[in-house]
């Protein structure tokens, strides 16, 4: 078996006394492409954010690359893609400038960018199909192109693990395809992926394992669940959590 990249053991998270995650355990091994699925508010985003230390655990533990999260320092091994790009107070930034931020984990904050940094930024821009927009302001890009900018930023650091939070939410079809292509390339090169999704769309063939979160707990861990009922209709591409203990009426409106 491949070495574990992420190990979550009995993790719990609560906001203001309300439990968002309860007793969640999961292991992601090298080379896996794991999708975390679930309805809005199920805790799927919180699970992924707690893996990165962005949300503190109230109980349990997270281990990254065989190191407890608290003592983990090799952040260059991880590429994080948040849900969306912040507005940045209106100060413009070019696509290249945003992607270049992805090199900081490797380079450190004091060393000026060198030729290697520029090469990697070019490579990442090319991988997501944005090489021709490198010098445009990110604010002038479409939502999908902005998402691709964020994945390029993560790829520029040459990570071993990509963590993506709803990378395809509200993204046009062309960008979703570009996204799936970049992800496939990353996985072929031996990368590990953990991604949160509401719908999989063109990412579906890339996913090797699905975890469904419902009400703060994992209720499915295995192959990508097949859409059922009216969710299976051709024009409906949601991949919903389908849990055995879930009231059927939730999906049969």
């Amino acid at each position: 078996m491949n070495p574990p990249v992420i190990t979550v053991a009995h993790a719990a998270v609560g906001y203001d006394g309300r439990a968002v995650l309860r007793d969640v355990s999961l292991t992601v091994t090298a080379g896996e492409v794991v999708a975390v699925l679930g309805a809005n508010g199920s805790g799927k985003s919180t699970l992924v954010r707690s893996v990165l230390g962005l949300v503190p655990l109230s109980a349990g533990s997270v281990t990254l690359f065989d190191r407890p999260l608290r003592r983990f320092r090799q952040w260059e091994r991880i590429g994080y893609v948040p849900q969306r790009l912040g507005a940045g107070g209106g100060v413009p930034a070019t696509v290249r400038e945003v992607v270049a931020s992805g090199r900081l984990a490797r380079r450190g904050i004091l060393r000026p960018p060198g030729a290697a940094d520029r090469t990697e930024v070019d490579r990442a821009l090319h991988a997501v199909g944005l090489a021709d927009r490198a010098n445009d302001a990110v604010a002038t890009l479409s939502g999908g192109q902005q998402q691709r900018t964020l994945i390029a930023r993560a790829l520029a650091g040459r990570p071993e693990l990509l963590v993506l939070d709803e990378p395809t939410a509200g993204v046009d079809a062309a960008s979703q395809e570009a996204f799936a292509g970049a992800l496939r390339e990353f996985v072929t090169d031996g990368g590990t992926v953990l991604l949160v999704a509401h719908e999989l769309g063109p990412l579906r063939p890339v996913i090797s394992r699905a975890i469904v979160v419902h009400d703060g707990s994992i209720c499915h861990d295995g192959p990508v669940p097949e859409p059922a009922g009216h969710h299976a209709e051709p024009d409906h591409d949601h991949v919903h959590p389908h849990c055995d203990d879930e009231p059927a009426r939730l999906w049969s409106i």
């Binding site: 990165l52 230390g53 962005l54 320092r73 090799q74 952040w75 260059e76 991880i78 994080y80 948040p82 790009l85 912040g86 940045g88 107070g89 930034a93 400038e97 945003v98 270049a100 931020s101 992805g102 090199r103 900081l104 984990a105 904050i109 004091l110 000026p112 960018p113 930023r153 650091g157 963590v163």
Partner: peptide, 27 residues
């Protein structure tokens, strides 16, 4: 000027900067 890439990253996306291992609090 010297810290521009790091300060840009922190001011642009603080969470991403944290996941990059930058000393966010110090910056």
């Amino acid at each position: 000027l010297v810290l521009r890439p790091a300060l840009f990253a922190v001011s642009h996306d603080e969470e991403y900067a944290r996941v990059s291992g930058l000393p966010v609090r110090t910056l």
